[in-house]
């Protein structure tokens, strides 16, 4: 068994345990009898709390975290840069275009229509991803792609600010703000149904791109001469990260740092291989977000902490620590 396989199994087991805990624990404490009732009769009161409130929320956290972990790993491999991430630095700007489209949908009052905000977020990600794919076909330098992503992200951010600026009602603004902070509160199995297929497709695309991502370790020139189709790889990788980041934004709003930190946490275990990094990074992202959401729920605060706020608060210092340790290995 390779180190990567062992890591994936360990992460999978930890994830299953975290899901179990996240489904079991919550604000309302249950007795043993109530847990037994929930298991035997899902339609009972405790059953509904467990299976219709906590379980879909935990699964949503898992899938959103996995999508972000996958998107981060793909972007870091593609850009040969350990700082690439769908959200925080705005690299690639896909999260920003996705968030802009979703914010627009909310302000236009479309939030009441089931699936409208999610569709808008995915549409925004598709537009952002499409622009990047067109650009990547013309310029190969990763630096150009990063700078374009930052520009795209800033512009989408400015338009999102403009929405607040011109928003007709403070209620709509608050709604957008609330959503932008990022959360999986009150998510249902419907939300799971949104993110799961998108994540599966993104994972498939990323897997197809993985030999090319590995080859890019040698740099653009050597990769181009390797015999692999790097143009195809670039399209697959950008589509995978846009789809994964877009589906995460669609269901949970903007959640930072997971896409940055998840690949870092597992990189050493796969000995840096950007191809083998994808699965453990997705699993680690899922695990991080399930645990983070559980902690956000359980912290005794008057207002529940938003997941995006919590990941940023914990993730930023943690990331600084990881970066400090990893700095010797970087080839920037």
């Amino acid at each position: 068994m390779t180190g990567a396989t062992r890591l994936n199994i360990a992460l999978g087991l930890a994830l299953a345990a975290a899901l179990g805990v996240a489904t079991t624990l919550g604000e309302t404490a249950f007795s043993a009898a109530q847990y037994a009732q929930a298991l035997s009769d899902p339609a009972s009161g405790p059953g509904e709390v467990l299976w219709l409130v906590r379980a879909p929320r935990a699964v949503c956290a898992l899938l959103v975290g996995a999508a972000l972990g996958l998107a981060g790993a793909v972007m870091q491999g593609l850009l040969r840069n350990p700082l690439a991430e769908p959200g925080v630095l705005g690299v690639l700007g896909v999260s920003a275009t996705s968030a802009l489209a979703a914010a627009t949908a909310i302000v236009l009052g479309l939030a009441a229509i089931p699936g409208a905000v999610e569709s808008a977020a995915l549409f925004g990600a598709a537009v952002g991803g499409g622009l990047l794919i067109v650009l990547a076909a013309r310029v190969r330098a990763p630096e150009a792609l990063i700078l374009f992503g930052v520009a795209l992200s800033s512009f989408a951010g400015a338009l999102t600010a403009l929405i607040f600026n011109l928003s007709p009602s403070p209620i709509a603004s608050a709604e957008v703000m609330n959503w932008l902070l990022g959360s999986v509160e009150n998510r249902s199995w419907n939300d799971v149904a949104w993110v799961a297929p998108a994540l599966l497709i993104a994972a498939f695309l990323a897997r197809e791109a993985s030999p090319g991502l590995r080859m890019l370790t040698l740099g653009e020139e050597a990769a181009r001469a390797s015999g692999l189709s790097m143009g195809r790889m670039r399209v697959l990788a950008l589509a995978a990260s846009a789809l994964a980041a877009g589906s995460a934004v669609a269901v949970a709003g903007v959640i930072g740092f997971v896409g940055l930190a998840a690949p870092h946490l597992v990189r050493a275990a796969v000995r840096g291989d950007p191809g083998r990094l994808l699965a453990p990074s997705a699993l680690a992202g899922g695990l991080m977000l399930v645990v983070a959401d559980l902690m956000a729920r359980m912290l005794p605060t008057d207002q529940e902490l938003k997941l995006g706020v919590f990941t940023a608060l914990v993730g930023a210092p943690l990331f600084a620590l990881i970066a400090w340790r990893a700095a010797r290995e970087w080839r920037l």
Binding site: R80, T217, L218, E221, R271, D273, P274, R331
Partner: peptide, 10 residues
């Protein structure tokens, strides 16, 4: 190629 940078610690 002349460029000998290797992006990751493989």
């Amino acid at each position: 190629p002349q460029d000998r940078s290797i992006a990751w610690n493989l």
